[in-house]
Structure formats: structure tokens, C-alpha cells
Design a protein around this nucleic acid. Structure first.
Length: 267
DNA sequence: GCGACAG
DNA sequence: ATCTTGTCGC
């Protein structure tokens, strides 16, 4: 999904001499919370007809012809959520893979690192590709998913760890769920900050009374949630067992590899 | 009604 | 996430 293309086609509809608001464009994209992204994009393109508020403008254009792409993606997430399995279906965890992405503008550098229980790297891989979807909270899968799916194709680790969330997500369908369902792999999400939910004593993270994740670690915890074929308890347990540093080792290695690849422009 | 919001 | 220098600490 090319969200910048969708944005451009909306801007192309603005009659000359008229203005639009960031919020108006975001609504036409299908989610008013995309307004900050619209603002940055309009600034980068010097579009002065995209204004912040309606104040002082009598010629605000709002009659966009649109299919609300972000609304469609939310529908897709709700449908995908129903395919998520929250039971342990990963057998003994022998190898764990970490995947991560680093960015240089619209160029993404993805990295895959697979390790065994002894902490040895069994295999790794890197890819690079252009990304045409900005970061919008709760739509991370549509930005990083395409990159990570290329790295997971044909791989069969016991379990995959990814930067982000699984069912700890407003629609119960974070990046880890997308990857897990798409590749039918056990996946857990490990986030460095809390997207939603409430952390209770003991570390359990709840949404509408349901346990959806665990805060792992005392001082600066990471927020772990199952993506597919894993329980909350197993997700937390696996995370703890690979925690030499705050970020569990396979993820940390993947992060380092992605960043170094970006900086060396190696692909 | 306003604010919060993975990377 | 990215833009960025030196600096504090294990």
C-alpha cells in the first residue's frame, strides 16, 4: 500500500485557489490521526494550500473523492486478528530469530539474525527496499511488514521476535500478529514503550480486562505480547531467557546489523 | 471535549 | 525511526 500516492491523488483534487486542512486530508485517508504525517509531507513538498486550521479560510475544500485507504487497513487488521492463535504451538524453542529495520529516508534496511540456545548465530540476512508508507501509530505493520516478510520468506526458526507489539494493540493486531499469521510462524512482539493498555502490579498488561502482554524488567521494562502461536506467559518467558541486555539478544543483533547496513550503505 | 499513540 | 557531540558510568 502506497500511502504517499494516495495522499498525492487527494492533493491533486484540490481546485486551484482553494485550501485544505491536514485533518481534512487525514480524514480522507481514513484516519484523522494521520494528520501529523500529512503536515510533514506537505511541508516537505512546500504545499502552501495545506493549512493547519480552518481559521481565516472561507475556501476550504473538503469534497474529496476517496476510498479511505486507512479505514480499509483497519478492516484488514480486524479480520487478521481472528486468525491469531494465542496458544503455545511452537514446540521446544531451539532457534530464535530477531528481525529489525533501519531507515535512511524512504530506503529501508532490514536484518534477520537467527541464534541457537547457545547464543551462536546460525544464519543472518539483509535486504533493502524503498518504503512508501509512513510511520502512523497502530499501522506499523504496513510500514515494516513488507521488509520483514522478505526476510522471513522460507525461514523456519522456532520463534521470531520483532520490535513492536502483537495483540497489545488497539485492534489486537500489531506487527507481530501480521508476521505470524502471514508466515504461520510463532512470533512475539517486544516494544520499548507502551502503545496502549494498562500495566498492573506484577507486570500484566490488560486491555478491557483481558491479559494481552507483560512488562518484563524492573527499571525500564520492555512490553512483550504474543503475535501468533504463543501465550502471554511463553512470550514473557522467552524474552527473559534471551535478555543479556534489556533488548533480547536476537533482536539486539538484528537491530545492530540493520543499523550498520544502513550506515555502510552495503546494499 | 481533549489527550494519548509500537518504530 | 532519524537528526547529532560530548559525556557520564559500569
Amino acid at each position: 500500500m502506497d500511502l504517499y500516492h494516495a495522499l498525492q491523488s487527494l492533493v491533486d483534487q484540490i481546485p486551484s485557489g482553494r485550501v485544505v486542512t491536514c485533518a481534512g486530508l487525514a480524514r480522507a485517508l481514513g484516519d484523522p490521526r494521520a494528520a501529523p504525517v500529512v503536515r510533514r509531507w506537505a511541508d516537505a513538498h512546500g504545499l502552501e494550500q495545506v493549512v493547519d486550521d480552518t481559521v481565516g479560510h472561507v475556501d476550504v475544500f473538503t469534497s474529496f473523492n476517496t476510498d479511505f485507504p486507512l479505514e480499509e487497513l483497519r478492516r484488514e487488521q480486524r479480520a487478521l486478528r481472528r486468525r491469531v492463535v494465542l496458544k503455545d504451538d511452537c514446540g521446544p524453542v531451539e532457534t530464535v530469530a530477531g528481525v529489525d529495520v533501519a531507515y535512511a529516508g524512504d530506503l529501508a534496511y532490514g536484518a534477520y539474525v537467527e541464534m541457537n540456545a547457545e547464543g551462536e548465530t546460525l544464519r543472518f540476512d539483509r535486504v533493502s527496499m524503498a518504503v512508501r508508507f509512513p510511520y502512523i501509530p497502530t499501522y506499523l505493520a504496513y510500514r515494516e511488514g513488507p521488509v520483514l516478510e522478505r526476510l522471513l520468506r522460507g525461514r523456519r526458526p522456532s520463534l521470531v521476535m520483532v520490535d513492536g507489539n502483537g495483540v497489545l494493540h488497539p485492534r489486537g493486531c500489531g506487527l507481530a500478529c501480521h508476521l505470524g499469521v502471514t508466515h504461520d510462524l510463532p512470533v512475539i512482539g517486544v516494544a520499548k514503550s507502551l502503545l496502549c493498555g494498562e500495566v498492573r502490579d506484577g507486570g500484566g498488561i490488560y486491555m478491557e480486562g483481558e491479559l494481552v502482554g507483560m512488562a518484563v524488567g524492573e527499571d525500564r521494562p520492555v512490553y512483550v505480547s504474543p503475535g501468533h502461536r504463543v501465550t502471554v506467559d511463553t512470550a514473557a518467558e522467552v524474552t527473559r531467557s534471551w535478555q543479556r541486555h534489556r533488548i533480547p539478544e536476537p533482536l539486539r543483533r538484528a537491530h545492530i546489523l540493520a543499523t550498520r547496513t544502513k550506515n555502510e550503505n552495503a546494499l
